[in-house]
């Protein structure tokens, strides 16, 4: 049986329109063999989660350069949890200050890409994040469910 390709929704939440990074990453993930769904701009967290569920996505990549990452990421994670879909790996890229990394990981974010992360690295980290059953080993609560990954049919990614 052919292994299912990793499905990733690349999304631009909020009002930020700087989409160069999102588009480069989307192409790079596609070139790395993943199925990529790019949402386009100005997406509400609810729209992003809805797209991810409809597309049966393994991961959501959020690209945020406007400084609104703490709020917007938390909303996406809460909505996923409400849909019992916390197994969807959420990764965040953009202008994310170091000080915020721990808090984001505590929310349940699995990887953080900052300017300078290579596209190869990003693709490998997305694949690894999808393969990992739980989000954050040092997390206190985070809201990331650690239950069985019911919707994924056992595919462990590309490794």
């Amino acid at each position: 049986m052919a292994e299912r390709k990793i499905r990733v929704v690349v999304a631009k939440p909020g009002l930020d329109g700087h989409d160069r990074g999102a588009k480069v990453i989307a192409r790079a993930l596609r070139d790395a063999g993943m199925e990529v769904i790019y949402t386009g701009l100005h997406q509400r967290p609810a729209q992003i989660v809805e797209t991810a569920l409809q597309e049966d996505a393994d991961a959501i990549g959020l690209s945020i350069l406007s400084g609104a990452h703490m709020t917007l990421t938390a909303e996406v994670l809460e909505l996923l949890a409400a849909e019992d879909a916390s197994e969807v790996a959420v990764v965040v890229g953009g202008v994310i200050p170091d000080e915020d990394h721990a808090a984001l990981r505590a929310q349940g974010v699995r990887e953080i890409f900052t300017p300078g992360t290579s596209t190869r690295e990003a693709a490998a980290l997305v694949a690894a994040a999808v393969a990992r059953p739980d989000a954050y080993d040092g997390g206190d609560d985070g809201g990331a469910a650690k239950g069985p990954r019911a919707r994924r049919g056992g595919s462990g990614g590309d490794s």
């Binding site: 909020g14 009002l15 930020d16 509400r44 406007s66 400084g67 609104a68 709020t71 917007l72």
Partner: peptide, 15 residues
């Protein structure tokens, strides 16, 4: 968008 519009709140005064 006004600062109190729902989609605006996360971005008020940020950039």
């Amino acid at each position: 968008l006004d600062s109190d519009a729902e989609p605006a709140r996360a971005e008020v005064g940020k950039v």
